[in-house]
Amino acid sequence: MKFFKEEHEVLKKILCRAYYEKERVKVSDHWQHGVMRRIRNLEPVESDASFFIRFQQLVWRLTPVVCLLILILATVLFRVEIVPKYGVFQLLLNGEEELSISQFVGL
């Protein structure tokens, strides 16, 4: 049996009606309590704003460590003899091949 356009239209109407008729099915209303019970057991949802607040808190908590690191680096730099750039450039031009890293850094 071959379907013609009109028959396809009828078929479409049948399928669409069956599809929409499904909305009439009754559903009990106990499931809402289940949702709220499950949600109350969770931690509150986190928004993007609360993420930034927590990030800020973390930054402040790390501040002493960062200050300490700055102090250590400053002390090291003070004790190290910094070779001027032109000196390094001159060494490279003169082909001083045995220039070690420790010499280069100035230790």
């Binding site: 599809y19 909305e23 099915v25 949702v35 499950r38 949802v45």
Partner: peptide, 26 residues
């Protein structure tokens, strides 16, 4: 849900939808 999934699965999926919605609110 009634139109897309079997009747027996509606309540469970409805719970899942609102649970996902809660988590996705932000």
């Amino acid at each position: 849900l009634k139109k897309h999934i079997p009747h027996i699965q509606i309540e469970e999926t409805a719970q899942e939808v609102f649970f996902r919605a809660y988590q996705g609110l932000p």
